[in-house]
């Protein structure tokens, strides 16, 4: 556990979460959610939860982004808010 690293990542987490909810282009929002997942994966690796970090890297940053893009491709890309 490295405290400065911890604090920096946590601040970035809040920023990416807010941005991904502000962006109106859903494809962009999904990619930023992927960045969020990757940051939280780094955070867990830093906390010593390597298995959880590995799962999040494979699932959150990888597969769930692909699922969302697959849905956006078949629906509308623009969001009203």
């Amino acid at each position: 556990m490295i405290v400065p690293f911890d604090i920096i990542i946590l601040i970035f987490l809040v920023i990416t979460a807010l941005i991904s909810l502000r962006v109106r282009d859903l494809l962009g929002a999904t990619m930023i959610l992927g960045v969020y997942s990757f940051l939280i994966c780094l955070l867990w690796a830093e906390m010593g939860a390597v298995d959880v970090a590995f799962t999040e890297a494979a699932v959150g940053a990888g597969v769930s982004t692909v699922f969302m893009i697959a849905t956006i491709y078949h629906t509308r890309r623009h969001s009203s808010d």
Partner: peptide, 17 residues
């Protein structure tokens, strides 16, 4: 090492994706 059925399964599924 870190890993197991869940992670390996997701990666294997991702390769087919």
């Amino acid at each position: 090492s870190p890993g197991g059925g869940f992670q390996g399964g997701v990666i294997l599924g991702a390769s087919f994706i």
